[in-house]
Simulated assay, not measured.
Amino acid sequence: MRVEFNACNLEVYRVTSITPIPALDSNYFWVIRPDINTPEVYLVDPGDAAPLITYLRQHQLVPVAILVTHRHRDHIGGIDELLRHWSIPVYGPESPAIPQITHKLKGGDKLFFAKMPLDVIAVPGHTTEHIAYYMPAREDANEPALFCGDALFAAGCGRMFDGPADVMWASLCRLAALPNATRIYCAHEYTLANLRFACAVEPDNLDIKQRHDQVSALRATNSITLPSSIALEKRTNPFLRCQEAGVKRFIEQQNGHHIESDAEVFALLRKAKDNW
């Protein structure tokens, strides 16, 4: 099912629904409704309160918690205003930049919300404290879901503000090890730009070319390109393919010497994307 960017349509996992709220320059805030028969919802990375408040009131929904992945302003900027309207807990990583956190989380923690268990995965690299939320498959939800902020993007990954590269590479490997059916709800609409870079890295990869054409058509109608999946990312995301011969060849040609480790390939690939 295609989720339109222009209207915040629902993608329904039978009972659970996950709605993108487009905001700011390229962000998506995610509204998780574990049971479509009740109005309770969870808000992921609310960087701006206004579009969320509008959506919640239009659909008569009630937020019961906020989930934060990391400290950047476009992920936390709406928390204070939301808390003025609803007195609800805020879950997220420990960081001086997020004083609103009421429940501090770290990798390995588990949350047991009603009808929505979540595993917390540490994914440092974009920022030191970055975490992701993993929703395992349920009887009424065939595919598991991942809310990964800026750690992993569709066909890309976040910049390394708090490196080093081997730490972020390990974080991405952790996510790549999730079930292939896992649907990825990242925080930005960067897919087309990421795929243009991926085409340059692996020009002979037919999966990348096909995805580029599909995403180009979606963006031509201003449609959302998410969610992705772990399986699709492993076929088309160069940052999850640093062990592949084509990606290594691209980096070695760019740098003029043989490269031994996958982590070094990742480091140089991220640098190449930064300067693309």
Rank of each mutant, 00 (worst) to 15 (best):
R241K: 06
C186K: 10
H126R: 14
H70D: 13
A217P: 00
F147R: 07
L43A: 09
V215M: 03
G156D: 15
L105S: 03
P164K: 14
V120H: 06
G78P: 01
V41W: 12
Q210G: 04
A154E: 12
L206M: 03
A176K: 02
Q58H: 02
P136Q: 09
M1F: 06
A217F: 00
Q243H: 13
H126T: 10
D274C: 10
N37Y: 12
L61H: 11
N180F: 00
V123L: 04
Q254R: 10
H212Q: 15
N27L: 03
D207N: 07
V247W: 00
G149P: 08
I79D: 08
E81F: 01
L83F: 06
S26W: 14
S261D: 09
F147S: 08
C242T: 02
P93H: 13
I101V: 04
K248H: 11
E260R: 13
P164V: 08
K209D: 09
W169K: 15
P227R: 13
K110Y: 03
R14H: 15
V201I: 01
N9P: 10
D48G: 05
M160G: 11
E264A: 11
F266Y: 14
R211C: 04
I251A: 01
I251H: 02
V68D: 00
G77E: 05
F239D: 14
H72Y: 08
H70C: 08
E81M: 07
A132M: 00
T182W: 03
A145C: 12
L118T: 01
M1Y: 11
S229K: 11
V90W: 04
Q214H: 11
E129T: 06
A165F: 10
G256P: 11
V62H: 14
G125T: 08
C148W: 04
D80R: 12
F112V: 10
N237Y: 11
A263H: 13
Y190N: 15
A65T: 01
Q214V: 02
Y42H: 14
L82H: 10
L111C: 06
V90A: 02
P99A: 09
A65I: 00
A176V: 00
H258M: 09
K115N: 15
C199E: 14
A217Y: 01
